[in-house]
């Protein structure tokens, strides 16, 4: 069966059980920490928001590496390029919207 050989080699890297388990465990940890911080309410809001943001960013990266098998290697050049493009557009859209509307509210004296 020459087809069988072809199929197992076609396409991208597909990881191993160990890789998925590692990704799952790190993701669970990065989920528990922010949930625990918010639910216990023992930390200041600023510290909690910082930890939530850092844990979310870390978990997105962990899942991209362990579940989507992205490694920034040269075979994935276009995938990496388009991902960087997407991230920059996302930052522009979200930060830009917040910036514009904060000024709008300020100028209309709606903000406090």
């Amino acid at each position: 069966m020459s087809n069988k050989h072809e199929q197992t080699h076609a396409g991208e890297a597909h990881g191993s059980t160990a890789e998925y388990v590692r990704g799952l465990i790190i993701s669970i940890l990065l989920t528990i920490v922010p949930f625990y911080m918010v639910m216990s309410g023992a930390w200041s809001d600023v510290a909690t928001v910082i930890v939530i943001s850092l844990a979310a960013t870390a978990q997105v990266l962990v899942q991209m590496i362990f579940f989507l098998h992205m490694d920034g290697s040269s075979e994935q050049g276009w995938i990496t390029m388009s991902a960087v493009y997407a991230v920059s557009i996302i930052v522009f859209v979200i930060a830009g919207s917040l910036w514009i509307f904060e000024h709008l509210n300020h100028n209309l004296l709606m903000g406090h």
Partner: peptide, 10 residues
């Protein structure tokens, strides 16, 4: 991940 972090937890 972004929804539970920035919508629910926040």
């Amino acid at each position: 991940i972004c929804v539970f972090s920035f919508v629910y937890l926040r």
